[in-house]
């Protein structure tokens, strides 16, 4: 019985220790970002591997999600005779929620896990150690550019997801199911508010980008430097990112769209 409490206490304490390490890590990254700015080459390379390589999966997923929304939305709304508001339904769902959240989840799965694996492997093959011994701060040179790239890419990817999704909804709703094209767009334009919907969606995706990049890089940096350790760290990135995204989404939605 005592063992159980001991184990529990130990895991709680080590979780707190990990949280502390990750906060310290974040501060080091933020300090290091300033050194990335005068060296755009490092940033472009990371933007390529984080953003450009995620482009395809985001666009395809966005399109399919938009199409499904168009399809399902049409059937639900036609019960109320409100097919014309399909545009509103698709756009609102995407811009406010699905765009930032699903894009962030996909990002965590594709780019986040890649970042964790890369950093973890660098740790395991002593590349990070080697850089330190050459008096090069690995946080400034390796970690900070990746963080900045993730932070910049996320809102762009979420915007792409939402936009392509809206077009996907149009293809299905207007093209296949006969909703009026003019009604699709005009209802959408008059209902969705720039400040409340678009800006809030963008803010969400910026927050998600920050969190996912932080988690992915920290798990890699903190990983046990063996192949098993790296694989566990990669899994943790995806799982913890998912929890963080969904949890923050609730909080942000409540703050932005609710009356709390």
């Amino acid at each position: 019985m005592i063992d159980f409490f001991q184990t529990l206490g130990h895991s709680v304490l080590s979780s707190f220790a990990k949280l502390g390490r990750s906060c310290f890590f974040l501060l080091q990254i933020l300090a290091g970002i300033l050194t990335v700015i005068p060296r755009p080459r490092l940033l472009t390379k990371q933007l390529y591997s984080v953003g450009v390589l995620s482009f395809l999966i985001i666009c395809i997923s966005g399109f399919f999600v938009g199409m499904v929304l168009g399809l399902q939305g049409f059937y639900i709304l036609s019960d109320f005779g409100a097919e014309e508001t399909l545009g509103v339904m698709v756009a609102a769902s995407l811009v406010r929620e699905l765009g930032p959240v699903v894009a962030a989840l996909l990002f965590a799965g594709r780019a986040g896990s890649a970042l964790t694996a890369e950093i973890g492997l660098m740790k395991a093959t002593e590349q990070l150690s080697g850089m330190e011994m050459m008096a090069i701060d690995p946080i400034k040179r390796i970690i900070a550019p990746r963080f900045l790239a993730g932070f910049i890419s996320m809102p762009l990817l979420a915007a792409l997801f939402s936009s392509i999704g809206v077009i996907g909804g149009q293809v299905v709703g207007v093209g296949l199911l006969g909703v009026d094209d003019g009604a699709y767009w005009s209802q959408m334009q008059s209902t969705l508010d720039f400040q409340e919907d678009i800006i809030n969606g963008v803010i969400k995706s910026i927050v998600f980008g920050f969190i996912v990049s932080w988690i992915a890089l920290f798990e890699g940096y903190d990983a046990v430097p063996t192949s098993e350790g790296v694989s566990r760290a990669t899994t943790r990135t995806v799982v913890n990112s998912a929890f963080a995204i969904l949890g923050l989404d609730f909080i942000l939605t409540a703050l932005m769209f609710g009356d709390i």
Binding site: E126, G130, A135
Partner: peptide, 19 residues
């Protein structure tokens, strides 16, 4: 410390080249 390290060279077991 960083200045000191610049005067030291270290060869790791695996080479530790950036891949």
């Amino acid at each position: 410390l960083y200045n000191l390290r610049k005067r030291m060279g270290m060869l790791f077991q695996s080479g530790a080249l950036l891949t």
